[in-house]
Design a protein around this nucleic acid. Sequence first.
DNA 1: AGCTCTTATGAATCATTGA
DNA 2: GTCAATGATTCATAAGAGC
Lengths: 284, 284
Amino acid sequence: MSSGIIPLPIHVEPETRTQAGPTFHLGDCRDILSDYPNDYFDLIITSPPYADARKNTYGGIHPDDYVTWFLARTAVFQRVLKPNGTFILNIKEQAKNGERHTYVLDLILALRTQGWLWTEEFIWHKKNCHPGKWPNRFRDAWERCLQFNLNRKFNMYQDAVRIPMGDWSKERLKKLGKNDVRRFTSQVESGFGKNIQNWVGRDLAYPSNVLHMATECGNKNHSATFPKGLPKWFIKLFTQEGDYVLDPFVGSGTSCHVAHELNRHSVGIDTVEDYIKQAQHVYD
Amino acid sequence: MSSGIIPLPIHVEPETRTQAGPTFHLGDCRDILSDYPNDYFDLIITSPPYADARKNTYGGIHPDDYVTWFLARTAVFQRVLKPNGTFILNIKEQAKNGERHTYVLDLILALRTQGWLWTEEFIWHKKNCHPGKWPNRFRDAWERCLQFNLNRKFNMYQDAVRIPMGDWSKERLKKLGKNDVRRFTSQVESGFGKNIQNWVGRDLAYPSNVLHMATECGNKNHSATFPKGLPKWFIKLFTQEGDYVLDPFVGSGTSCHVAHELNRHSVGIDTVEDYIKQAQHVYD
DNA sequence: AGCTCTTATGAATCATTGA
DNA sequence: GTCAATGATTCATAAGAGC
């Protein structure tokens, strides 16, 4: 797992670190992370505020300024991420004036210039996407989950996300009710079944780079959460128990909550006080 | 449908045009299309040769040269595509040396500079993608289907691609749930009311921008075939009967065969004689 | 156990208005 | 005229409850 003693962040009290829950910080991740040592995190996973022309809103960074704004933060991520760690970025460009924005494409290219390797692009297929109907466009049912690394060798625990498949599972399905079969099937397709543990050890297959997940936002106060299953999958794939996970735009805290459930240490940062209070409140 | 008389391409014999089948040309689409008039096609759909560092193979264009190579052709596409037409580009960057290539991102940006609007990015989810296992990567189960347009107003026939609704909806329409009624009646408050008028008598649903289609290994001679369902979907969505479809990198001819089945005129071009012979052979 | 019914819920998009 | 803010308009699915 971890190799040697990991120094504690300077400003974090020891009793905070020995608490059961994640560590939450209020502030800009650039500033907060300056107190963290090099090579500290095994995984950085985040769904940052998307570019938005509207001012005075959370995430109101103009598309034209977005790359510059973002790279100032990813420069710090490079320092605190372990050499064998992974950075997962969940993002999707909106349509504006009939066209898709290009700032995400610009961002990928800029991150490579900054030194990141663009290892993979996972697709999150949102099975229950936002309603709507337009003459020139169907509903947007997917988002990008971009994987970046610092080295070509990185930690990946593929066995942790295997899914049941094959003849054996068919036998098993015979014993289940019709409703259960339908739900199980969707679990198999998605790779995010709740009760995957029950099938561990028998005829497991590896998933692909398309993730089928319904959106389920447990928290109505924060509009921008991803469903628990999404960070869960990546945390299992790229970390082991006892590892360190960072979400620098943690919002309502989903990724840290999940990391905690999976026995990973985690740090969540956000500039909005309400989110941090609310995320922390679970552990008070 | 078509408005007025469409001039015939100069070098195409009249009997060719009155034949039942598509028109196939051997050669570089830049050259072949020079004989076609402006504003001729309603849809250009193609799966071009992907960038490949290997020389002397079909599609062996080096990634560094790909954008320049491609833009020389899309400049011609702009001329022969109708103002209200659509250009669908099926493409996916490979992984090389542990990273995804970026030439597709570069291409999207370059096409916008050339004057195309990047209207949408559809995801083709390949349900049965190639098996395989790598230590740092899962199976690649998706490809991009990039939609480009010349104008913000373009032809789109959404009803042509509606799909059957799930079973759950049939009974539901008989007796709408309490929640449906409540949200409908309080549309202004909730912002998510259902327009019940749109539901009554409907058993078809509109798709999203994620397409689920299995790959077919119909033709082993051509490596870059897409399954029939993919061009079929886009041809139905963006053209009507009697319209004109172009595939400038037609390969084994799939998109033209499908266009023909759907009573659209079609033109297929390829630089490889074997492909053209084979595509044409069906109609001899 | 299996079926039906009910409820919950989502980072949207575009036309219009106003600065 | 361009740009930014506001408002109106949109489905489809998963999962739970109840019989």
